[in-house]
Simulated assay, not measured.
Amino acid sequence: MSRPGSRLEVRDLHRAFGGVQAVRGVSFTLESGDLLALIGPNGAGKSTCFNLLNGQLRPDRGSVRLDGAELVGLPPRRVWALGVGRTFQITATFASMTVAENVQMVFLSRARRLFGLWRPAAACFREEALALLDRVGMASQAERPCGVLAYGDLKRVELAMALASDPKILLMDEPTAGMAPTERLELMALTAALVRERGLAVLFTEHDMDVVFGHATRVLVLDRGRTIAEGPPEAVRADARVQSVYLGGDA
């Protein structure tokens, strides 16, 4: 279901670890309908930037606002409750629970009905969970334990879990890592469709340039913690500095 438009405003983010400036003055906006790729070489500051956005790290300086509300200083749980969801490079599911139960757990958490955990998990929000699993192509495996799934299928389950939190903004940390090339393109095509259907705004990191330039609506490039380029995919691909620093001149 589509929602009214949301806007994430990131302004002048800085974060240092000792003498290393991991993020230096990063600013951007993310609005409903955006599929923004955050790319750069190893050590560019991508993971640190992600962790600053969802409250896992606090910036030394800067602002992160969701629809005008400041998120800096809030714990990750509160940021999540306000509408910033996240998927991780390494999937985070309960291996012994079924696919459906994993998604139901997110609905339960969102509804703050975690008391009596195991019994409600088998019955509460089941229809909602199955509907999401159908949308991501996993309804036929709803009763299988997550621990026996192929890695690409786990990524789809994790996407359904993220959607169960009803996010306004979705942060996807290397969503196609470990997947076969065809699976990567299919997952990002699904993500792009969900952006349109639900009015989502998505920020994702990715090393596969076919995925980035095939699906992103905008691309933001970091190098040593600084933004060196931002714009439509083709403009970023043609940027001489981006080619020198990250694409190796072969893009």
Rank of each mutant, 00 (worst) to 15 (best):
V219R: 06
N42F: 00
N102V: 03
F94Q: 02
A95K: 13
F204E: 01
D34W: 02
A123K: 13
V195K: 09
D166F: 01
E206S: 03
L114M: 14
Y151L: 07
F94H: 05
L53P: 06
R144H: 11
F50L: 10
R196N: 06
L38I: 03
A251K: 04
A100Y: 03
C146P: 05
G85E: 03
D12G: 11
F50Q: 00
T48W: 10
D173C: 07
A111I: 05
L130S: 02
M97E: 07
R3I: 12
G147D: 04
A129S: 14
G147F: 10
T182E: 12
G18E: 08
T87L: 01
A160D: 03
D173N: 04
F204D: 00
V195M: 02
R7L: 14
L163D: 05
M179A: 08
L130G: 00
A164V: 03
H14A: 06
A238Q: 14
V64A: 12
V211S: 08
R15F: 07
G40A: 08
A192S: 11
E127W: 01
D208P: 06
V79A: 13
E127C: 01
A123Q: 13
P167R: 00
G214Q: 09
L200D: 02
M105H: 14
R11A: 10
Q104H: 04
L133A: 03
T48I: 04
V64N: 08
L187F: 04
M172V: 01
A16N: 07
E234D: 14
V236Y: 05
A192G: 05
P232D: 10
E230F: 12
A150K: 12
A177D: 13
P4W: 08
A131E: 15
R24E: 09
L132N: 02
Q243I: 11
